[in-house]
Amino acid sequence: MHAFIARRVLQSLYVLVALSVVIFFLIRFAPGNPSVIRLGFTEDMDAHAARERDEKELGLDKPIYVQYYRWVTHVVRGDFGVTVTLGIGVDVRTLVLEKARRSLPIALAAMLIGIVFSIPLGIIAGTRPNTVIDHAVTAFSLFGVAAPSFWVGLMLILFFAVRLGWFPTSGYGPIEGGFSFHNLVLPASTLGIQLVGGLTRFMRSGMLDVMSSDYIRTAHAKGLKYWAVVMRHALKNALLVVVTVIALTFGGLLTGAVVTETVFAWPGLGQLLVTAIKRLDYGVVQAAVLLAGSSFIFVNLIADIAYGYLDPRIRYQ
C-alpha cells in the first residue's frame, strides 16, 4: 500500500510540474500585451519606447524559458511575486489565498445543495423509471445542466433579492464588512442548481444499473422490504460513481464558479482570475490556476488512495 501511495504522490508531482509549464506558456499565448494594459491611454508619450521600458521592468524582455526559470525558482520558495494591476505591491500568494478562502464557502455550500437534493432525487427517479416522477426529475436535472448560470443567477437576484427582498443581491457579506450566510444563499443556489442537475443524472443511472443486478433480485427474493433493499443494498453501490464525480467536481469548484462569482460580485478566486486575465496580470493568473490545479490534483490523489483502500485490485493494476 505504501508503494502505491508513493507512486500516486510522485505521479501527482509530475502533473503539477506539467501544469506549471502549461499555465505559464498558455497565458503568454493570450492576445495582448501586459505593458500596453498597464500603460493605458498614453498622452504625450512615445508609446513604443514606453512599452519597451515597461516590458523590461516586468522582465518580459527576457526569453520565455528564462522567465519560466525565474518564476519556478521563486515559486518553490513560496514567492509568487506581487500583483502589478490589483493594488500595486500586494503579495500574490496572500491575495490568491485570501480569495480562495472566500471562494470556499460558495463551493462548500453549492456542494451541500448538490448532495442534499441530487441523491434523493436520483434515488426516486432511478427506482421508478419511466414514470411521471422520473420524467419530472429528469426534466429538472436537464434544466439544471442546461440553464446558463449567468441567467439563473440574474433570475434569482431579480426574484429573491429585488422583488421579495429575502436575500442580498451581491457581495460576500454586508458592505460594511464581514461574511454573511445571507449573501451566500443565492450564489450557492445558482451553482447548486447546476450541480443538482449533473449529480441527479449520475445518481439515477447508478440506481438503474444497480437495481437490475442479481444481488438486488436476490434480496427481493429473500423477502426484504422494498425500501430496505434500496437503502441498504442498492444505494451503497450506486453512490460509488456519484462520490467520484463529487470529488472531481469539488476540485474544480474553487475557480469554476467564475460566472457565478461575477454575477453576484462575490470577491472570490474565480472573479480574481477573470480580472487578472482581463488585465493580463500574469503573476496572479499563474498563481490562481496553480492553486486550483493543485487542489484538483490533491482531491484526485485522495480519491485514488481511498479507492486503493476500498478496492485492493486497483493497487495492483
Binding site: 436575500f167 442580498p168 457579506g173 454586508p174 454573511s180 450566510f181 445571507h182 449573501n183 451566500l184
Partner: peptide
C-alpha cells in the same frame, strides 16, 4: 444559516 446569518 440562511435564517440567522448576519443581515444587511
Amino acid at each position: 444559516a440562511a435564517a440567522c446569518g448576519g443581515g444587511t
